[in-house]
């Protein structure tokens, strides 16, 4: 043993933490995609699957948190290592909440009246695509420790908010049309709201990546009522 490497245990633990977070984010990404699919196609079976898988996501979150605590206790990390683990704990919470939003959309798919296919505004699909893209890019910023990618995610959130507001106003206006189902329009608003919150949570992840890389606690997601 003439060459003992330092940090092997810590580096292995941090790599395993990253892998876990990436796997969980991929599950969430699929859940969001499928929840919109289930809602738009009135696919009750798929919706129920998403709802039941949310329990697995919740369990996975605790598992990852437990791993973070274990690294803290056994390795006593400082500086960049400590910031990464704290970031990991924050990210896993955001991911779990995103899973809740996906399950929320799936519940709307189950709850509102059954029709063969819903008349879902195109804006929902656009917002869904965009918030999933933000999720993927915020996790990518985490893996690559890239603050500039994190800032780009926040910039995207403004765009997503604009799309959400347009859809919101258009849908509210449609409630005045007696031929449209209010239940359906309300469900569209709830779906859009859940997706918009997923975008906010991706921005929260981006904020944490900035903390991880620079040590600065930054608020990127400033609420603008207009």
């Amino acid at each position: 043993m003439d060459n003992i490497q330092t940090r092997v245990t810590l580096d292995d633990s941090l790599n395993a933490l990253t892998d876990d977070l990436v796997r969980l984010s991929s599950k969430i990404d699929t859940a969001i995609e499928q929840s919109v699919q289930a809602y738009s196609n009135c696919d009750i079976e798929l919706a129920q699957q998403i709802i039941s898988e949310d329990t697995i996501i919740n369990e996975k979150r605790f598992e990852i948190e437990e791993r973070c605590l274990q690294i803290m206790v056994t390795q006593q990390p400082v500086a960049g290592d400590m910031r990464m683990i704290v970031t990991g704990m924050n990210i896993v919470t955001e991911l779990e909440r995103m899973g809740d939003h996906a399950a929320g959309i799936a519940r709307l798919a189950v709850r509102v009246e059954e029709v063969p296919k819903r008349d879902v505004p195109g804006g929902i699909f656009q917002i869904s695509t965009q918030c999933r893209d933000m999720l993927r890019r915020s996790v990518e910023a985490f893996i690559q420790r890239d603050a500039s990618k994190a800032y780009a995610v926040a910039a995207n959130d403004d765009n997503l908010d604009t799309q959400y507001r347009l859809l919101f106003h258009k849908t509210v206006a449609e409630t005045r049309d007696a031929s449209k189902s209010t239940d359906h329009l309300l469900s569209v608003l709830f779906v859009a709201h859940n997706l918009e919150r997923i975008g906010d949570r991706a921005t929260n992840i981006a904020e944490r990546v900035i903390f991880m890389t620079s040590g600065k606690l930054t608020e990127l997601n400033v609420y603008d009522p207009e």
Partner: peptide, 19 residues
């Protein structure tokens, strides 16, 4: 500051056990 966000790379490397 030193143990949360050190400014110098060498400090970070030392306190995180990289050398």
């Amino acid at each position: 500051t030193i143990f949360t966000r050190p400014t110098v790379q060498r400090t970070e490397e030392y306190i995180t056990g990289r050398f």
